[in-house]
Design a protein around this nucleic acid. Sequence first.
DNA 1: TTGACAAATCTAACGATGTTAAATAATCTT
DNA 2: AAGATTATTTAACATCGTTAGATTTGTCAA
Lengths: 206, 206
Amino acid sequence: MGTKERREKHKEGLRQLILDAAIELFVTEGYESTTMRKIAEKIDYSPPTIYFYFRDKAELFDNICAETFGKLDQQMELLRAEVATEKSEPLVNLEKALRGYIDFGLRHPNHYTVTFILTSEFEANGGESRKKTTGLKTFGCMRQMVAEYLISKNGTDVGVEETSQALWAAIHGVTSLLITQKGFPFVEQKMLINKLVEILIKGVRN
Amino acid sequence: MGTKERREKHKEGLRQLILDAAIELFVTEGYESTTMRKIAEKIDYSPPTIYFYFRDKAELFDNICAETFGKLDQQMELLRAEVATEKSEPLVNLEKALRGYIDFGLRHPNHYTVTFILTSEFEANGGESRKKTTGLKTFGCMRQMVAEYLISKNGTDVGVEETSQALWAAIHGVTSLLITQKGFPFVEQKMLINKLVEILIKGVRN
DNA sequence: TTGACAAATCTAACGATGTTAAATAATCTT
DNA sequence: AAGATTATTTAACATCGTTAGATTTGTCAA
C-alpha cells in the first residue's frame, strides 16, 4: 500500500506549493496585500483549497514566519556556541546578537512585521498560535547570551529577565521603526543602529 | 446674514459629533474594529455622511491622534520649561521625558498604535498625512531635551540627532511591545520600564 | 412667496476581503 | 465494480471602506 504514501506525498507537495507561492507574494508585497485569492491564482487552484491545508490565513503565515525565524535562532545558537568554547568575550557576543537581531529584522521586514509588530489576537482564538512560541524561542536565545554575560561579570545571573527583555525592547524599537516609519527623517541607518547599540552596551556594562 | 454662520456652526457641530463618536469606539475597541458604519450608526446618520466631513477613515483618525498627541507635546513642553528655569538637572529631566513618553503610550494604546505602530502608507497617497507631522513634532520635543543635556555636558550638541533617535527607538520598543504583544510573559511592567530607562540613562551618561 | 441654486444627507451599490456550505470530482479500499 | 473517504470546486455570505446618484434640506434673490 504505497498508494497512501503517494497521496500523502502529493498532499505534502501541494502544501509546500501553497507555502512557496504565499512566501513569494508575501516577501514582495507584504501581509495585507497577499490575498488568499492571489495565492490560489498563482498555483492554479481555487481559494478554498488552501483551507484544506491551513486553518486560516493567520496559520499559513505563522508557518512561514516560524520557518524564517528558525534561521535567526540558528544564528544566535552559533554565537552562543562561540562563547561556550571561550573563543570570545560574552559582552562582544551579546553585542553581536543585538546587531544580528536588528539586521535580521531589516532583511526580512515582512516576516518581522507579522511576528512582532502586528497585534496578535490569539486570546480571541482557541489558543496557541505558533507566533507565540516563535517569538518566545527567538527571545530565549538572546536571554541566554545575557545570562552568560551577567554570570561572567557578577557570578550570578540575577536580573537576566529584566535585562534581556529591556534589551530586546530596545532593539525591537529600532527595527520596527525603520520598517514601518519609512517617511521619518532618520539619520543614516548604520549610524542609528551603532548609536543605540553603543548606548545599550554601555548601559549594561556599568 | 447670520444664517450662513448658523449653518457652519451646525456643520462644525456635526463634525465634532463624528469625532466624539469615533473616539469613544476607537478607545474601547481599537482602530480596525471601529467601523465607519458603527460610527454612523452611533450618531444616527448614514455612513456616507462621514465622508462629507472627512476624506477617508485615515484622515478621521489622523485628526483624533493628532489631538491626543498634542497633550503629550504640552507635557514635554512643560518639562523643557522646567530645565530652562534651572529648576532641575537636564539628565533627570531627560529621564522624566522618557518615562512620560512610555507612560503616555500605555495610557493611550490605540492612539499610539495608529500613530507609531501601524505602517503609514502616505507615499502611496497624495502627500502629507497629518500623522507624519504629528510624529515629527512629538519627537522634536524629546530631541530638544537631549540637546540641552548634551550641551550641559559637552558644551556642544553634536550627536543630538543620533542620540535622540536612538533613545526614541528604545522607548518606542517597550511601548509598542507592551501594547501589541499581550501574550508574551513580560516581567512586571514597571520593572521592565525601570530597567530599560536605567540602561539608557547610564548609556548616554558615559 | 416662490423658484433657483447650493449644501447636506440618504439609498443603493461596487469591489475587495477572509471564510464557509454544499456539491462534485478524484482516489482509495474492499 | 461499489462504496467510502479525501480532495477540489462553485457559489455564496458577511464585512469592510468607499463612491455614484438621487433626494432632501437650507439659503438667498426676484
